[in-house]
Each structure stands twice: as structure tokens, then as C-alpha cells.
Design a protein around this nucleic acid. Structure first.
Lengths: 356, 356
DNA sequence: AAAACTTCCGAAACCGATTTCGGTTGCTTT
DNA sequence: AAAGCAACCGAAATCGGTTTCGGAAGTTTT
């Protein structure tokens, strides 16, 4: 049971049949008698036969494999969502016994050449890409190659391909509305470089929410920084050192929000009391932040599964533009949102509600 | 340039050569004249030819692919290290143009059958598995199958296969020594279920460190709980409600340590002052915990790269038992370790050193 | 100028499956 | 009993490459 790999040929010899008969028996062809079919099945089990996939896929003409293109690290950042996404993707593929390949390139031109090779060499039948740029060249390439794909996120012009995204703009409108109800009139925004579409969307949401509620549109309230916790710290520092600092800050990511909290601590301001902070991502760790971070959570577990299903549908011939799914983020209230404190910037801890 | 896939045959026809000549030209055979070689190369580029990998690998007899077996979620836990590990693995494989497959199974018997299929169907030339059980059946299976593999972590008996691990036992001795120097005499241990070998190792380190330093060996100081933050909270609760609670706690993971911090807060104890807490993993997020978590960090980025290199060496024929690499964890001091406070359990915030 | 080498390329087997097509059996029709 | 019809299986082509082997040119040796 250990030794040599058992091919269709040796299995056939073992049974006194030909390879074609054995193959058809294993693949449930109608012209094989039930008794030989069962006999073949049994022998295959005993000998531990499993069809060579390279041969099989060469023959049937599809690699039965899709590829997830891992996003490069942005900054020194980890990507905690990758594991969950892969789990969901794998689940969708497992139902068909397809394989999941992961690929990553150092550079963005590396991405381009590696996509082209993956497709041209017949290794993958479809590709999932994450976190596209505003105008992402990979999408045009995939379209030119005629390779089925689905995007986790969107680009600026997202009409002619399949994507699954969380509505960042809507989420930020929600956040602004929430803060407005808490009495905030000057709300700061900490953003990421606008080459990423998600960064633009969330800024759009902020802008719309602020305008819609008639809040301050002071351009100084918008701070773009490096997409890391340190970036968040720096941006929050700028905001709080403004002559007229905001009473609340929304951040494009939890990581940046965590950084922002540090800036508040450094100024002896209490998040959620002196200044409200809302992050984005719903990272589990935010629960243990100081204080626990209020955030806009996305249903990550679901994303992988859906991306897989969508991609398989497209490979099966469905029209890509039928798959443009927008999920809503939902507000997870923890401890960093609270009523506006108009004295922010001055120490005023008398309004704390928590006992002890 | 978009349309049909260009095979060796059409490339040969385009050039007026035979497939065998073209193939040998592309593979640098000596019996092809430099001029035709260059001519072939150029045409291949222009037509965007890329050898079909299923055909190629069938022919050369190796899948040129390795598989990473994703660990199942333990508890409701995320696995932030997976992305980094995959990045390192991919890097090692990229050097040879090999592919990286990821696979995951719901159950542990699912793991067994999926390993067997992956190997028997010739899809992978080697496998990486993470976080083995004390006595992990997957290892025996892989050995029986004759499939090259390397383990990220170790089992109880780890003499006859390749592994890469961080020395959890040594790390916990280090932690205990550190706490002893800070004056702690009663140190609690929050562990995970001992079916995982890493859980046993870290407990062993704790036991050895405590014995070596002549500290309290009260069995009540050892608490095993679910491998989640809530498990950590529960275990820390038990410890602190002891008649004679510890002045410090070491935890088998950062996640459990974060949970432990919650238990301390609930009792109005200040981590790092009233009770010291040391985690394990070096999660980046610990930096933003309340307060920032002191931890034993492991060099995760390195792990993937090494695992990939080791596996490739074994596939090349190297002896697996030559690759048994033990990395050291190092203490990252943040804010949750401090001098022993013998009044722990009673509220005493007068010794805080931090201003404001 | 014939023999002996090189140099370079084509023919064909092979990797391990799938799938079409055709040909035996054995059994039912008249 | 001859013809017709299922049911069942084998032969062979095919997928797209790699690799061995042999042979036709062109060059050098005698």
C-alpha cells in the first residue's frame, strides 16, 4: 500500500481489463456493467489508486484550479484577513475537488507577468485578486487574456467585471451619521493613500456624510497618511494639534485607528470621552484595544466563500457582470465612541460614566 | 495576442520546425544551433507561448508543486500567522517556479484522506503541515506514503522527520527567569489543551523554570483552558480568585493573555503593576493592548522561507532528519511585566510609576 | 575523393489519463 | 435458424509536452 504509484495501467493489468474499460468504469459510464464497475471500484480502493491529476487535467482540458493572488504587504502590515479568505475559498472549491493555488509577486509588474504565465501555461482556470488600485492594470490584462476572474474590492470603474466588496462609502456615511447623533460637529478623517480605491471610497463616504449632515467641511480635518498604525498616530497628532481640533475621528482601518488612540493617549485625551474614534475592518483584536475599539465590521468569513462561488460560476460560463455584490458593513460599538465633548483638548474627565 | 492558446505545435508550425526541435530549443539543448535557438525564443515571446504545465509536468514526472495544509481554526480563533507563512513559502518556491497549493480539511480524518489523495494523485511533491498534535497521525501517513514533508512545529517524538520550530520550552524558562528576577515567587500558567504538542512544551518550560528557580509549584497555579481569549479570561479568573493568587501569569498565547488582561481589569487590578502578564507569539496587535502586552516573539517571517527551503532540499533527496531547526523566541518587553507586588489581590494603585 | 566526424534537426516513443468508435458476445425477435 | 438488438468491452486517437535515437547535411581528415 505504500510503494509505487499505481497507474491506470497497472490497475487494469491487475484486473485483466484494459485501461479504457477501467477508466470508464471509474467514471460511471453507462456501457460498463454494474458488476465490473463494482469490481473495478473495489480494486481501485484496495490498491489505493487515484488518477494522476496532471494527466487527467491535460486530457480533459481544464486545470481544475484557481489562483488567489495574495496582496502585497502594505507598509509593515500583516493581513489578518488572508487566512479567513483562503478558508472560504477552499471551501467553495472543495465541493468540486478543485485546487487552490496561491501566488504573490514582489512588484506590480511581477504581478502582471505572473498572471500572464499562470493563465497562458494553463495552470489556472480563474483568478481572485484582492484590494485593487483605483485603476488596476491587472484587470485589463485578465480581460485581454480572457481569463475568468473576480475582484475582492472594486476599482474606480467597476462596471464590466465581477466583484465582491463591502460598501465602504455607505459605511462611512453610517459612521458620520452615528457621530452626528452623538453631537459631533467637527469630525476628522484619517485616510490611506488614494491610489487604493477603498481609500477613495471611504473618503467619499466621509465627505458625503459630513455634507449631508451639515457638519464642518474644514479641509484640515482630512488627513492622509501611511497605511499603518504609525501613520494613524501621525495623522491623529496633526488633527489634535489643530487650533480647532475635531471631537471625533473616523479611520479607514482599525490599524490606523489603533495608532490614532496612541496619539490621544500621548495628549492625555481619553478615547470615547474626550475624542471619539471609529475604525474600520472589525478586527477581532480591537476588542482588546485600549479602550476597546468601536469599528465598522465586514463579514470576512463570507467573502471567501462567495468569491469562490462567483468565480466558479463565471468559469462555468455565467456573465461576470451579473456578479457585483455589495455587502454592508455594520457598526460594532465598543468603547471609543461617545457623546461629543466640546472641551476636547482640555482635560476633562468629570463626565466619565464608567464606575470605578 | 489574446485569442487562442498557443501550443508547441502551432509554434512549431509557425516556425516551420518540428515540435521536438522547438522544445529542445526552448530548453537549451546543445544540439540546437544558436541561431535557431534565438529564432525560436523570439517567436515564442511574440506569440506569447508558455508551456502547458499539466502536459509538461506529466512528461517530466513531477508536479513541481508543494502543498501547505492550513491548520483548522482552533476555537473561534483567527490565524494571523498564515499570511506571513505563505508569503515566505511562496518566496522559496518562486525561485524554482514551483507552485504553492493550499489545502484544508474540516475534520482530522478529512486531513488524512486529503493528504492521501494529494500525494497519490501526483498533485504535490511535498507537504508542509503546521501545529501538529502530540502524536499526529498525519506524520506516520506521510512517511508511509513516502511523501517528502516538513513540520512547522514538533510532535512528542520528533526524531525521524524534518521540522522547524520555535523553542517554546526554552521560551517559558526565559519568561520565568525574567519574572523571578523581578521578584515573583508565585507565577501562574495559563495553558491550552495538552493534545497540542506546543501546549505541552510550554508547560514543560514553565515547570522547569519554576523548579529551577525554587518558586512555588502549587498545582493550582497551572490552569488549562480553551485556546481563546475567553479561555484566558476564565483561567485568569480562577487564578486570581485563589486564596493565594499569583503575582504574575504566563500564557501560552497572546490571545489568551489578552483575555487574561480582561480578567484583571474586571478585578480592578493593573497588569504590569499588580499582576504581571506575559504572552506568547509576538502578535503585532499586542502593542495596542491595554496595556501593551509583554510577549515572547517568534520570527514568523523567517519560518515560511525556511520551511520552503527545507522541503525543497528533501525533495531533492536530502535526508529529512538533517533538518530539525529550533529557533529561539525572544522577550519583547512592553508594559505588562513589572516588579512583584505582594499585595496583589488587594487594590493598591499607589505604586504606579507612570505619570498621569 | 572517400572516409570519418560534427552539427543540427526530424521521427517517434512516452508520460497517464479521457473518449470516440467499432466489434464481440449473447439474447430476443420473426 | 437467420436477422436484429442490446449490453459490454478493447483498440486507438488525443491532450501537449519531453527525450531518445537516428539520419541528412556540411566539414574536416587522410
Amino acid at each position: 500500500m505504500a510503494g509505487k504509484t499505481v497507474s491506470l495501467k497497472v490497475l487494469a493489468a491487475h484486473l485483466g481489463l484494459t485501461v479504457s474499460t477501467v477508466s470508464r468504469a471509474l467514471n460511471d459510464y453507462a456501457d460498463i456493467s454494474p458488476v465490473t464497475r463494482d469490481r473495478v471500484r473495489k480494486a481501485a480502493d484496495e490498491l489505493g489508486y487515484s488518477a494522476n491529476q496532471n494527466a487527467r487535467r491535460l486530457s480533459i482540458g481544464t486545470p481544475e484550479t484557481v489562483c488567489y493572488l495574495m496582496p502585497r504587504q502594505i507598509g509593515a502590515n500583516v493581513q489578518p484577513f488572508v487566512a479567513q479568505l483562503l478558508a472560504g475559498l477552499g471551501e467553495a472549491l472543495n465541493d468540486r475537488n478543485w485546487d487552490l493555488l496561491v501566488s504573490q509577486a514582489e512588484t506590480s509588474v511581477g504581478d502582471m507577468t505572473s498572471i500572464e504565465r499562470l493563465v497562458r501555461s494553463g495552470r489556472v482556470a480563474g483568478i481572485v485578486i484582492s484590494r485593487p488600485l483605483k485603476n488596476d492594470p491587472r484587470i485589463k490584462l485578465l480581460q485581454q487574456l480572457g481569463c475568468p476572474f473576480v475582484v475582492h474590492g472594486r476599482t474606480a470603474n467597476s462596471v464590466d467585471y465581477a466583484w465582491y466588496d463591502v460598501d465602504g462609502e455607505d459605511a462611512f456615511v453610517t459612521a458620520i451619521n452615528h457621530l452626528e447623533r452623538l453631537g459631533h460637529r467637527r469630525i476628522g478623517f484619517i485616510g490611506a493613500p488614494l491610489q487604493y480605491q477603498f481609500a477613495q471610497e471611504r473618503l467619499d463616504g466621509y465627505t458625503r456624510g459630513v455634507a449631508h449632515n451639515g457638519l464642518s467641511q474644514d479641509p484640515d480635518l482630512v488627513q492622509i497618511a501611511e497605511f499603518t498604525d504609525d501613520g494613524g498616530t501621525a495623522a491623529a497628532g496633526v488633527l489634535m494639534d489643530l487650533p480647532n481640533p475635531p471631537t471625533a475621528i473616523v479611520c479607514v482601518s482599525d490599524m490606523m485607528a489603533l495608532g490614532a488612540l496612541e496619539a490621544l493617549h500621548a495628549r492625555s485625551l481619553t478615547p470615547g470621552e474626550d475624542v471619539s474614534v471609529i475604525g474600520y475592518d472589525g478586527l477581532y483584536f480591537g476588542k482588546h484595544a485600549n479602550p476597546p475599539l468601536t469599528t465598522l465590521a465586514q463579514p470576512q468569513a463570507h467573502a471567501g466563500r462567495r468569491l469562490g462561488d462567483i468565480l466558479l460560476s463565471i468559469i462555468d460560463g455565467a456573465d461576470p457582470i451579473k456578479f457585483q455584490e455589495l455587502q454592508r458593513a455594520h457598526l460594532v460599538q465598543r468603547m471609543t465612541d461617545g457623546p461629543a465633548n466640546v472641551d476636547a483638548g482640555q482635560e476633562d474627565v468629570s463626565v466619565r460614566e464608567e464606575p470605578q
